[in-house]
């Protein structure tokens, strides 16, 4: 039902469909920020309801624990602030940079092709270097 009726989606060309392109209604989160949201959600739940969390929730929780590279909520804020200094980048590109942490500008432009022609390699390398320094 969804296919065909919606505009084409392709992350390599930053096409995300109507809902996920609407910055008013939708914002991408970093894995470290998601980990914090899930921690809070679990903390708010009374003990007897802990086991009622859905498989979708627990799988996302396991995933963020395994792939979260910035260990505290404070560091997550620093990462976010560093990314915000690049308003020329799409929110999805910023999120991908912090989640995947490519080591070089060439690697970043290979796994996030939309970065090509948008940001100088030197500037990008500096951003990647700053992000890597925050990894614990």
């Amino acid at each position: 039902m969804e296919l065909g009726s919606e505009q084409e989606e392709n992350a390599e060309r930053l096409q995300f469909g109507a809902l996920f392109s609407d910055a008013e209604r939708c914002q991408p989160l970093l894995i470290c920020e998601v980990a914090e949201v899930l921690r809070q959600k679990r903390a708010e739940l009374p003990a007897e309801l802990q086991s009622s969390l859905s498989p979708v929730f627990t799988k996302a929780e396991t995933y963020t624990e395994r792939f979260n590279q910035f260990r505290s909520a404070e560091v997550a804020k620093v990462v976010r602030a560093r990314l915000e200094r690049h308003p020329e980048l799409h929110p999805f590109e910023r999120t991908q940079l912090a989640n995947l942490l490519p080591e070089t500008a060439a690697e970043a432009k290979s796994i996030i092709p939309s970065l090509k022609g948008k940001i100088d390699d030197d500037v990008l390398a500096q951003l990647l270097h700053d992000l890597a320094a925050l990894v614990e």
């Binding site: 809902l19 996920f20 209604r25 939708c26 991408p28 989160l29 894995i31 999120t95 991908q96 989640n99």
Partner: peptide
């Protein structure tokens, strides 16, 4: 993996 906060 991309997570989003969306208004629904």
């Amino acid at each position: 993996m991309a997570f989003y906060l969306v208004e629904l």
